[in-house]
């Protein structure tokens, strides 16, 4: 059974989605990620979707869900590396992912997370 690896980088977690997502994989990822945030005490999650070339409403919702779950567990989610075609598709689908922070690449996403850590727990300052 394949699963999506969750890498730990300091106090953040890095999830790189490289395969086609399907329902079961997505549910498993939600499971694994929430557990990992809990056990490792992560303060931020980076979801790298730069390898994803197609997206549907299901995946869009899944990303929003994961972000919401992480939020409740006091970890911030940054979605990084979205491809232009994916962004256009999501907008056309009306999935604008409000409340999900985004960054151009993992590097920038990490900076964003660090800055928000430095600024303290003020969520408003997180949205650049």
């Amino acid at each position: 059974m394949d699963r999506i690896p969750i890498l730990r980088m300091g106090e953040f977690l890095l999830v790189t989605i490289q395969v086609d997502m399907h329902d079961e994989l997505a549910m498993r990822l939600q499971d694994d990620l929430t557990n990992a945030i809990q056990t490792k005490g992560a303060k931020g999650v980076l979801i790298d979707i730069s390898a994803m070339e197609m997206v549907d409403s299901f995946i869009g919702r899944m990303i929003a869900d994961i972000s919401g779950m992480a939020q409740i567990l006091d970890a911030k989610t940054v979605l990084v590396g979205m491809q232009p075609a994916v962004a256009i598709t999501l907008v056309e689908l009306g999935l604008t992912l409000p409340g999900v922070a985004t960054a151009l690449n993992v590097d920038r996403g990490m900076q964003l997370l660090r800055r928000s850590m430095d600024d303290g727990d003020d969520d408003a300052s997180f949205q650049r």
Partner: peptide
């Protein structure tokens, strides 16, 4: 608005 939203999704302002 669509363009702005797509840009935000990609992580740009």
């Amino acid at each position: 608005i669509k363009t702005v939203t797509a840009l935000r999704l990609m992580g740009a302002d």
